[in-house]
Amino acid sequence: MSDETVTVAHGSGAGKTREFIEDRICSRFADAGGDPDLAVGLGALDDGAVHDLGDQSVVVTTDSHVVSPLSFPGGDIGRLAVAGTVNDLAVMGATDPLSLTCSLVVEAGTSLDLLEEILDSMQAACEEAGCAITTGDTKVMGSGEIDGIVINTTGVGVLPRGEHVPDAGLSPGDKLVLSGPVGDHGITLLAEREGFDIDGDLTSDVAPINDIVDAALDTGTVTAMKDPTRGGLATALNEMVRKADIGATVDETAIPVRESVAAAGELLGIDPFDVANEGKVVFGVDAADAEAVVEAIRSTQRGSDAAVIGEVTADNAGRVVLDTGFGRRYLSEPEGEQLPRIC
């Protein structure tokens, strides 16, 4: 017995979360390692599981969504719940979602108008992503027993190209491609919580991006994909190089960051690379195809700022080197909850 308890840091998305998930949670479940039809299981810690079923492969993923505030500039928890799961399917290669569940847990006292607004927003996001809610569950908890609304969505999709794309597939020489500016979602929410009123109109990027992934996969050889959600771009890049046991060099001046996000980030003392995105993808792309993939992404609705941001290297295994335009340093993963700097 120990007197340790779960802390907020266990869920913040960085190193401590990884240890928590690997050592305390996944280690307790059998990985179904003997199942020949399970191409990707729990042990891979990827964005979803892949089952090979004869001539088709099915991807399953799940995500519980909590966010404060429930509505924010650019979206709400409903849009987040659909985009989060659709995007996790997409970065496995399942760009055509088959079925989405909606499991609602609502606190007594929640405004019905707000709830309906959130559900309408889920439906609108489903239409954007080309999918539908096909089954669900609803629970109401007492006031104070949970905070507002929690939505779990589970997604099932097939792999239209037969193959899944792992997050661990990078190899030296690959280019790293980013689908658009980073930090929008995290900085917008932190600014909202702090009551910051910044003229640069901060807006969350929450959106389904299965069309962006489709465009990339149709155009070139994609070796790895990840959506940089919790822990941000810094965590996603570090995870990708660590899993592939290779290194990467990233050019900070090539990484798109909106001016308003950069300015708010400086005020809050929070690096836009360290906070969540809800509508972006990082790709590893065969160098020969990189420019074509960037062009293809740019032709999609939300991909106009796509860019090559770096390159995968054989040296510096497990680390991401950031060229700041001045000097170089390692890009580290954020540790613990990102709190605004106070003094």
Partner: peptide
């Protein structure tokens, strides 16, 4: 503290041997 040497060293990952 955000001004502390150790916190800064951890946050910015240190300098690679290049």
């Amino acid at each position: 503290s955000d001004e502390g040497t150790c916190k800064i060293a951890l946050e910015y990952g240190g300098q690679p041997d290049l």
